[in-house]
Amino acid sequence: MHAVVDSLAMIAVSYVMGFLFYGFYRQLNARVQRRWGPSIWQNFFDNMKFFFKSETLTHGPMFFFGPMIIMAGAFTTVLFVPFLKDSDWLQGFSQYGNLILIIYLLVVGPLGNALAVGSSGNPFGVMGVTRGLTRLMGLEVPFFLGLALVMLQHETTSVHAIMAAQDGLANWGLVTNPIAFCVILLPFIASQNGSPFDVVGAPVEVYAGPRVEFGGRLLGVLMTQNMMMSIAKLVLVVDLFMGGATNILVLIGKAFALFLLTTVVSMVFPRLKTEQAVDFFWKVPLGLGVLAVILTVWLPSWSA
């Protein structure tokens, strides 16, 4: 019973945080561009509008099941990320998983949806999927390397253990392993589909993106999972580098701070092409990662 209530609470929290954060983003972005922008609730309204569309077009069973798989993937990901530390609540099933599992779970849903995109028969949708997979190939290398530095630092893949080791500001991953945070920051923005790495599914690229064939309630599902998945990733980075959170307000605060950081980076830079983005990831963040490995792994072992 506890598990059921807890799971539903986690899903609700991630959904509410999701639309509020994105609502705020739209508002902030508008202000930076000297527009008024929509209200902070706009994402919620949009999402509901999609869910209550009277008609939805499909292209066969696989097309229908793709969004269901991506949504189930989002739920599973949320449930395997511990939201709070030292608490019985908002834990989901995180004690049965680990960091590497979460990283892979982040990809399960999008791959399921890729089947639906392929099934639609729209070549532009498939082009978008290929772009997405290519970007993933670029970003995952430095992202995983940064996380591996954290796993090595704590000698565990358990998110709980990593969180528990960061008691107090001085033990935050951000303080004890800042270079790992720098390594993952830009790939993290890309994994959130943030500018400048947002060529997959950016507003002007909709016609060459994975979502080109989806409409109505199916698009609503895709939008919902995107917001929830973003929150799961934010919370994961909060857990790993910002000491986790002991209650929901602290969690929202820390996640929001991180969200602001990624947002301001996103707002400043223009969009890169896919191949430019991949090349960038393999040069700058990965180069930094290699430097981090040399500094924090090789040098200590040689001087010892």
Partner: peptide
């Protein structure tokens, strides 16, 4: 270094999938 539970993972994913599909089909339209 930690591990994972295959049965729990499969159950969570399966339940989420059934739940999502069911809820979706319940929606109007």
């Amino acid at each position: 270094y930690g591990g994972y539970d295959g049965v729990v993972l499969m159950l969570v994913f399966g339940t989420a999938f059934a739940l999502v599909t069911g809820l979706f089909l319940l929606l109007r339209g």
